[in-house]
Every structure is written in C-alpha cells, then in structure tokens.
Write a protein that binds this DNA or RNA. Structure first.
Lengths: 115, 115
DNA sequence: AAATGTACTTTCCTTTTAGAAACTACTATA
DNA sequence: TATAGTAGTTTCTAAAAGGAAAGTACATTT
C-alpha cells in the first residue's frame, strides 16, 4: 500500500496566492502603492506620507515595484531634473486586494479593541 | 511660511492595510490558512500540503495564527493524543482577501508569461 | 557664500529570518 | 526488536532585513 500523502491538495489556491504574495509581500509595498495612488509623486513626499519608512527602505521597495511594472518612474528633463512616480494601468488591478485588506484591517481593529 | 508637508495624506488607507498585514503577512500564513480551510487538520498533513515549508516554519507560523484566533488547536485526549487544527469562525472573514489574492495571482501569472 | 531642496546611496551595526539536519518522546505496527 | 508515524523542538550557520546617520551631487534660493 502507498501509505503516504494523506493530505488534501490545496495547490490550486496556494500557488496563485503565493504568486501574488511574491509581488506585494512586505511591510512597505502596499503602503507605497496606496500613497502613489492617492497622488503622491515625489520620492520625499511618498516617503514622508508613510510613517516610519526610511529612504533606504523606500528606494529598495520602489525599485521592486518598478520592476514588477506596478509603478513607473518618470524622468522629466527640465533644467532641474524632476522625477515622478505614478501608477501604471496594471496597478489598478490591485485595488480589489487593497480594498479587501483595508476593510478587513478596519474590522480587525474593532475586533481587537472590543475584546 | 510652513514650507513642509507637501504630501497628501493616505493614512486612512495605509493604517488599516498595515493592521491587516501585521496579521497575515509572510510567506506561509495564508497558505496555512488555505490548507486548513480545505480540510487538512494534522500538523504533518498541513506541512506536507505546502511545498517547501519546514516543520520549524510551520510551528512558528501556526502559533501566531492561533494567537490571532484564526486557527484553533484542538487536543483530543484519546489514548494516542490527537492534535487537530481548524478554522475559527473568524478565519472566514479572510476569504475576501484570499479570493482577491488568488484571482490576482492567476491573472498575474498569465500576464508574466504572455510578455 | 550659505542654506535649502531633491533623490537617493553608503556605512555601520544589530536583529531577524531562513534552511538543513538531527533529535525527542511517545505509540503503534510489522 | 526494528521501523514508522505524530508533533513538534533544537542546533547551527548563512543570508537577509532593519534602522540610524551621514554623505553625495546637483540646482535653486536667500
């Protein structure tokens, strides 16, 4: 008898969820996306809009988001070179995730306080 | 003049999202929740249903999920003591997040391959 | 000339995290 | 008696992450 593999497969769900987490996991990526989403475009603005985030963390996370084509870095070659960050159209596909997390977070806070 | 704070506030969204991430962030927490959700109840079954997860990682993540009351640990005192893990009712509130991540993950994989 | 703003990078250092492998303790089974 | 299953823990080590502070390079403003 093959006495192994008694568990139920859940890879149909686990694999795509992990694919998603590989892109948006971490403390800062979604906050950065949110901040850019509300209209912050400059490095310093984005960074200051998220309490506790250092420029080092910003630079690293932002690079990964640009690589994943969720945010684009735009260099405007005016005399003082201006750099702005914007949502790509692809970033819009994240709104259901952001909304679900936001809603859950609000309810979870209530849940924790009422206990 | 107050020449500071040129950024737009996004804390209304960032704070709850961070509250949510504090609970479900990490590589293994949602996979574990999914695995228990489909019916895996035993430590070894859950662990083996998620490729790459070591028992050490399992034990750590599972403890945190129990602390956050998303999963309960049930000790059945039969002659060989039996330990099972189950979803709490509260875990059900995560399904919108899991669904959103799963759907996005599926589409993202298509997106990556087509390029 | 000095100070300020912008967008980062670099350094230093400490704390976490991650993975492999072995180990424990108990029970049941061959 | 030896092996296997269950639910983890322990040890070791290497890699990664995290935070504070200062630095860079260039341009504008005062």
């Amino acid at each position: 008898m093959t006495g192994k593999k008694t568990y139920l497969s859940c890879l149909d769900s686990v694999k795509p969820v992990r694919d998603a987490l590989d892109v948006i996991n971490g403390k800062w990526k979604l906050p950065i996306i949110i901040s850019v989403g509300v209209g912050n475009e400059r490095f310093t603005d984005i960074q200051e809009s998220i309490p506790g985030m250092t420029p080092k963390a910003m630079a690293k996370e932002l690079k990964e988001l640009v690589q994943h084509k969720l945010i684009e870095r735009i260099v405007t070659d005016d005399y003082p070179v201006k750099i702005t960050y914007r949502w790509t159209p692809y970033a819009n596909t994240l709104t259901p995730i952001i909304d679900a997390l936001k809603e859950w977070g609000i309810k979870h806070r209530e849940e924790v306080f009422k206990k």
